[in-house]
Amino acid sequence: MAVLSLEHVTYIYGEGTPFEIRALDDVTLTVREGSVTGIIGHTGSGKSTLVQLFNGLEKPMSGRVLLDGKDIWADPKKMRDIRFRVGLVMQYPEYQLFEETIRADIAFGPRNMGLDETEIAYRVDEAASFVGLDRELLDKSPFDLSGGQKRRAAIAGIMAMRPEVLVLDEPAAGLDPRGRDTILEGIRTYGKRTGATVIIVSHSMEDMAAYCDDIIVMEHAKVALSGTRDEVFANAERLTAVGLDVPQITHLMLLLKERGLAVPDGIYTVEAATAALRRLFS
């Protein structure tokens, strides 16, 4: 079932000025309920605009954004409720921390929802555990934390609202590999435990291959390719044509195929590649 979908959505920046940019051009897509969906594309392909449409921060020039089959713009007065249901973590979210302690900052969203204090306290602890923040850190000031810890605190701030759909724009950008894995792992845990749908925007194919069920590929303000992870990686040639990096192991398989080895399409993990090569040579 589709939890979130876009129907013929067009979005233009600076419409009617000499600086007009068409960020999304007649985009139609659906996100499966309970899935981890990756949106991938180059800078300027319309990814960040897309995520701001999901929770009604931007209004499309034309087309509809549907949450559970209902147009989110049907009643703009209820937009706040939509934003609690579709949680958005923007790029570099660590720059939005403003409270004196991490605990207070994570509690900011739930408090805006009007929850009672015991529920807020419970949710703060739960969200902190999802992203792997130590309890001692919760009473520190955001200024005393490292960049990766701040990023995790900011993500926890959205998770504490327990949205049905968690949207993250480049959650791992600029982090070291270990920090990246902690964050992506925490996001996956959140999805599994709460049954929420997770949408991750990224430009890293490796992350997509490791963490996503479904993948949507954006190019020049349009959807270039979409489907399950297997379907998308089966089109590895198309991905390379779009100018995206396929995972290194997929690239290797493509090269082997070019040289005449009968390896199957759609391999994106080292394990699958080992198995395929074993079969080929045994």
């Binding site: 921060l57 934003r83 609690f84 949680g87 939005q96 900011f108 805006n112 929802m113 959205i158």
Partner: peptide
């Protein structure tokens, strides 16, 4: 604009 959007996403009115 970015910060406003981020805080709107957390329910600031």
């Amino acid at each position: 604009n970015k910060i406003m959007n981020a805080q709107k996403a957390r329910g600031v009115d």
